[in-house]
């Protein structure tokens, strides 16, 4: 299966379509960090929020690059389950690379500062919270991107609608006082946590929430793939 993951990543990179989401991510991060310096935990929390739709879009592009017939050839060769899993893994690897760029980016442009007041978090703690917030976003974004892929929804219009709805919904439903926060991945809650009180139990709860949400959406993706044939 690792051969199929490699083949899909290579296809994604060689078409040049990987550039668009990466560029969008860099522009967004540039805008985010261009406004001044912030402490790592706070900055990374917001960075993770803005990366969510970018990573979902990147996943959709990665899965859509492969022609339908080639996807079926892969299915015949490795079986249904491994073909699906290889796509999700390839998207996950690509997302982790983008996350690495996003974590490095503010240090390159001088967008982060060390602790200023006595109560501020140290840089290593802020960095650890930032990594957590970004890793929280990866499975949720991959799941949404997969659900929006052509193999799942068929037409391109539906895919864009799923992406837009998921991206906007994650922000709107994640606002403080939301009536149905559980319908969205906890990316907004994670941003609030990195900027405020980050108790271990809260981090664990949000992690479980993110994984459960991702699992439910991946379930929807697999169900759609089954229905699409």
């Amino acid at each position: 299966m690792s051969a199929l993951v490699r083949m899909r990543l290579t296809g994604f990179l060689r078409t040049g379509r990987a550039v668009a989401p990466l560029l969008a991510g860099l522009i967004t991060l540039g805008t985010l960090y261009g406004g001044g310096r912030a402490q790592p935990a706070e900055a990374y929390g917001v960075s993770a929020v803005v990366l969510f739709p970018v990573l979902a879009w990147q996943t959709k592009i990665l899965l859509d690059v492969e022609p339908d017939v080639q996807r079926r050839l892969a299915q015949v060769t490795v079986g249904v389950a491994r073909e699906r899993l290889a796509g999700l893994l390839a998207a996950g690897v690509a997302a982790l690379v983008t996350v690495a760029v996003a974590l490095l980016f503010p240090w390159l442009v001088g967008g982060v500062s060390g602790p200023v007041d006595p109560g501020d978090r140290s840089i290593p703690v802020g960095l650890a919270l930032g990594v957590w917030a970004h890793l929280l976003v990866v499975p949720a974004a991959v799941a949404l991107g997969a659900l929006a892929s052509r193999a799942s929804v068929g037409g391109a219009g539906f895919g864009v609608a799923v992406l837009a709805l998921g991206g906007v919904g994650a922000v709107v439903l994640g606002l403080s006082g939301s009536v149905a926060p559980w319908l969205a991945p906890p990316i907004m809650a994670a941003a609030r946590t990195t900027g405020g009180d980050a108790a271990a139990l809260t981090l664990l709860g949000l992690s479980v929430w993110a994984l459960a949400w991702s699992a439910a959406v991946v379930g929807g993706y697999l169900w759609r793939r089954r229905a699409q044939g």
């Binding site: 083949m7 290579t10 060689r14 050839l73 015949v76």
Partner: peptide, 27 residues
């Protein structure tokens, strides 16, 4: 199972060798 589709999906960014090597590894 070996499947030869009616139309081979040629819209892929690989050379013949790279594609076939990739498929052989996938197999």
């Amino acid at each position: 199972v070996g499947w030869v589709p009616e139309r081979f999906p040629a819209d892929q960014p690989f050379t013949v060798t790279r594609y076939l090597t990739g498929m052989a590894r996938v197999a």
